[in-house]
């Protein structure tokens, strides 16, 4: 156990100073874990965890969607969640800011903590939680309002700005961080829905960071975008890592490899393997992970 934590710790440290973690493969092994074994292998734990998930189970009415997942999400890291369709990675992501509450018949057990606070505790208020853990969705979903209003809405309802000038500043800063400011600064009053798909998604990212969250959850943020827009969003994710912890669900293994430091592989509701991204893609320990990344299924 200690060795696991240490190695994970090292991974995270490495990721701070160097984004291209190529030479950091430390755990050499030859024998892969068999397909039938559904125990999680790899480094589930990190020392500087922002969010900790322990024995999380999710049920949709009778369907057992997530089975006993234990995973840490570290400070300022990008963790990618990959796996075949229907494996539960989006479900797991939506547990992290309780977006699953809106789904009828969804039940979550186990504990998920953010900075030591149980988010499923009775006393936990989802409104500040969702301000703390923002979310970007698969399909760009700007409000059918002006670009300015899209960004200003979150800060306004949370009372983050005392006056118009402060609000303007938040809007500008968020758009700048999302790399959208130069493209939209002259048309702030135009509807957000009039932007191109990639711009809309960056607008949604700007809307999310306008409420200064600590963690940003991204649910396949690039699946509806073309390669150029995807490249821009990926670049943006890389920059955002400086200030935020990001958990991203993606169908593209290349994208996971490009943007993340750690990768978690889900299979039919089980968390099969977690590890440093580089290790997962070059030297997976579990047979299922290997099958998936080598394209044998999925």
């Amino acid at each position: 156990m200690t060795s696991l934590t240490e190695s994970a710790d090292k991974t995270v440290d490495k990721s701070f100073d160097d984004t291209t973690v190529t030479e950091a493969i430390e755990v050499e092994h030859t024998a892969t874990v068999a397909r039938e074994n559904r125990e999680t292998v790899g480094e589930q734990f990190v020392d500087t965890a922002r969010m900790t998930c322990r024995d999380v189970d999710v049920y949709y009415s009778d369907k057992h969607a997530i089975k006993n997942v234990t995973l840490d999400i570290g400070h300022n890291e990008v963790i990618a969640m990959i796996g075949p369709s229907g494996c539960g990675k989006s479900t797991f992501l939506r547990c992290l800011n309780r977006m699953n509450d809106t789904i009828d018949g969804c039940r979550v057990s186990g504990t998920i903590e953010i900075d030591g606070q149980d988010i499923y505790h009775k006393s936990m208020d989802v409104v500040p939680l969702r301000a703390q853990v923002g979310m970007v969705f698969q399909k760009p979903n700007p409000f059918p309002k002006s670009i300015y209003e899209n960004i200003a809405y979150g800060p306004r309802i949370h009372g983050l700005a005392q006056n118009k000038a402060e609000l303007d500043e938040i809007v500008e800063r968020s758009l700048e961080r999302a790399g959208l400011w130069d493209e939209v600064k002259d048309r702030m009053e135009q509807p957000g829905t009039g932007l191109s798909g990639g711009q809309q998604q960056r607008l949604c990212i700007a809307r999310t960071i306008a409420v200064s969250p600590e963690v940003i959850l991204m649910d396949e943020p690039c699946s509806a975008l073309d390669p150029i827009a995807t490249a821009k969003v990926e670049e943006l994710i890389d920059e955002l890592r400086e200030h935020y912890t990001i958990a991203i669900v993606t169908h593209s293994m290349q994208q996971a490899a490009r943007v993340s430091q750690r990768t978690a592989y889900f299979h039919l509701g089980d968390l099969i393997e977690v590890g440093e991204t580089n290790q997962i893609f070059t030297n997976p320990r579990h047979q299922l992970t290997e099958d998936y990344i080598t394209g044998r299924f999925g």
């Binding site: 409104v127 979903n141 979150g154 306008a210």
Partner: peptide, 23 residues
């Protein structure tokens, strides 16, 4: 009303009431 709008509002931390009345 598309559910994506509801999710967007809830996702930035609007309460249920705010999501309904604002969006």
């Amino acid at each position: 009303v598309p559910p994506s709008i509801r999710e967007a509002a809830l996702g930035v931390g609007a309460s249920k009431m705010q999501a309904i009345f604002h969006h």
